[in-house]
Design a protein around this nucleic acid. Structure first.
Lengths: 217, 217
DNA sequence: GAACGAGTCAACAGGGTGTCGAGTTACGGC
DNA sequence: GCCGTAACTCGACACCCTGTTGACTCGTTC
């Protein structure tokens, strides 16, 4: 809650301010978490598991992180940074190609980012139900994506390339929700899912028809 | 796991076979769960809370249900039955109206069913990450809906009303995923969401354009 | 070489789950 | 009217997990 403005590199999210040689331990904890998440869900990983994996006792773990969730949040910072960077590259850089290619690249980049961090993405979605902070982080990322897309949709409408329809923001929320859920299902493996290679084509098709009425080609 | 074929009314999902006057208690437990779910998430409700609410001790709770999840699953049986019934009514009964009205009614019914059981729906989604049985139940319902929709899409394609495109099943999965996530977000209230009254119109628009290329009107 | 702060952990407090075994009650048969 | 049986009940236990406390070690610094 008290995010003072004085911290050097922003000792964020329940991570205590970094100490001299404690950096090692911190990294070991993070590495352990990432490794264990490949094997089993976050709920099946205890603080003790993380501590042992880093070669320390459980109380010592609390010297570095305030909770298991704080570890996940720290790990997620990387994914979020990467997602945001890719998003900017796609949206800001690509005005040269046609609209179809623009959306295609945006969707592919989005999918690729989360696919590359499969275990973390799945853990992220799972932890949303138990941690308000995780939920908030998700909402933040979601909101940024929605805003980018809504703006792009409005731009297409303004230049007459897309017909009017539901509020651009509502459309963006619906389509982004679809992305999120479809990608999660394809990564987590439980329940009916679209095969990994078909995810982007199918999503793209729905996006294009929803935005342009009929797919431009 | 051992679902013997001999039980009279199918003593399902961790619910022990019903006894003479224990039926009362069972109902009291279920009622308590439903009431508490209106106030707080499943994770914040203990077995003790359920037991006290039903006027029994914690060990006695285990006489009636094998776990907290079993209670949720029993509660969800109602919702699932209702969802399935509505689904059948919409898909089997409504060949008289136009395609637009057909999809509209299906979406509205789907939305209405889950909106009417807001707390249970939210709990259902939350418990998916912690209980394999809950996950399986969700996958079942999802799969039935996907199959209905895929069949309907194929029918529209066969009669020339809808253009070809991605496999009908993939399209149905993507669109159903959107429904699920959008409705959950609008019910749970965390993160960006579409206003309750706008959910069906927006979803409908995306469905129609995705299936028909351009909305028929 | 005293003082300090980083780093460490045994022991504790507290809350949750699920089980076991010893009750208590209700009721049908003898 | 008493007895056995099965439904029903719960105190006490074993266990697992979280997060905190207080004392201890060690390197650095003056």
């Amino acid at each position: 809650m008290s995010d003072g403005a004085g911290s050097p590199v922003a000792a964020g999210r329940g991570r205590r301010p970094a100490r001299a040689r404690g950096d090692d331990r911190e990294l070991q904890i993070l590495a352990t978490a990432e490794r264990l998440l490949e094997e089993r869900p976050l709920g099946a990983i205890s603080v003790d598991d993380l501590a042992r994996g880093a070669g320390i006792s459980r109380p010592t773990f609390y010297f570095y992180f305030t909770s298991k969730d704080a570890v996940l949040l720290t790990l997620l910072d990387r994914v979020v940074a990467e997602a945001d960077a890719t998003m900017s590259a796609v949206f800001d850089g690509g005005a040269s190609t046609g609209p179809r290619e623009g959306w295609q690249r945006a969707l592919a980049a989005y999918h690729e980012t989360f696919r590359r961090h499969r275990a973390l993405t799945v853990a992220w979605a799972e932890a949303r139900s138990t941690s308000a902070e995780v939920r908030a982080l998700w909402a933040e990322v979601f909101e940024r994506w929605v805003q980018r897309c809504a703006t792009a949709i409005e731009a297409e409408r303004a230049r007459g390339a897309a017909p009017s329809g539901p509020p651009a923001r509502d459309l963006a929320i619906a389509l982004t929700s679809m992305n999120e859920r479809v990608i999660y299902a394809s990564l987590s493996g439980d329940g009916p899912a679209i095969a990994a290679d078909d995810v982007v084509p199918v999503l793209l098709r729905v996006w294009l028809t929803a935005v342009y009425g009929t797919p431009p080609d």
